[in-house]
Amino acid sequence: MAKKFEHILDECLDRMAGGEAIEKCLADHPEHAAELRPLLESAAMVREKSASLEPRPEFRSQAKQRLLAQVRAGAEAQPERKRFAIFEWHYRWAVAVAAVLLVLLIGGSTTVVASTNAMPDDFLYPVKIRVEKVRLAFAGSDTAKAKLQADFAERRAEELAKMAEKGKWGKVEQAAERLANHLEKISNIAARKRLTGKISQEDVARLTDTLAAYAAEHPMIFKRALEKMPPENKAIIVRLLERSQARLVEAVQDLNIAARLKANGLQSVEGLIRIMRGDKWLVGRDVVRIDENTIIEGTPLLGRFALVWVTKESDGSLLAQRIVLNVQ
């Protein structure tokens, strides 16, 4: 049976990836050569040109050092687990279950209370982190999770400052990394809220107050903490803290947008612009209508990512009020 064209195309692409010239595969499939050639040339062009997208050597090296530092820090943080190597899976569950029990049944136990104040260089610190994860798992709503993440970010900031006082720079970096992750999670939750508008005004106020207080207080703490830091560690921490700060700003912006969406009864849709026909666009999976009042930020083109705030008309159609385009 004759081979399907897409199989021949795939075979030629694999041969090209292995270093073979286009001509050789075309010669093997002369009946398809005319159709194959432009497709193979397009693939070759993408391969060749994208290969020039090389990471900066200094970034490559810094990222590697940072990753390996994380690996080592993680390995050092769990020496007691080695005894349980065979039962690693059971061990994790045992710790998780123990933490759940501690939190839910004997929340005021000495271990939990003591671990709450544990610093990254303390024996009980892994318990503290585990308890936090359990609390997050039981937090329920996204808003409750965001609030907890903000509380934990606050703790990481304190830990960062303490570890900097002690000159434990590896632990400072770990705290900065965790801090960035907490704020990243808040930012992701806020981004979802921005799209759906499903958040109460009270929750927005509460969260933005927490984040604003955090933003007002912590730059000074970090500045002091970093003063004594050796330059080789400093660049990484500064980058992490900048990332944290950016996420924080985004989260506050998103929460405010979410509140406005809610107040104005708007919904949002997002996705790549797939079709633009007259006053109707297909964005992601939704058709939205544009009228003379639609505010368009950026240049709309097929294939661009668009966030569209819409109102639902009486006939069920979506009328775009504002479109924000990711200009690429």
């Binding site: 992701n188 998103d254 947008i257 997002e270 990512f305 924000v324 990711n326 690429q328």
Partner: peptide, 22 residues
Amino acid sequence: IDHYRRFSRVQMTALEMPVATH
């Protein structure tokens, strides 16, 4: 994908993507 979600809010006015620097 997360990046696209997050950055749909941002107006990027200029591209800067240096390619291989050698």
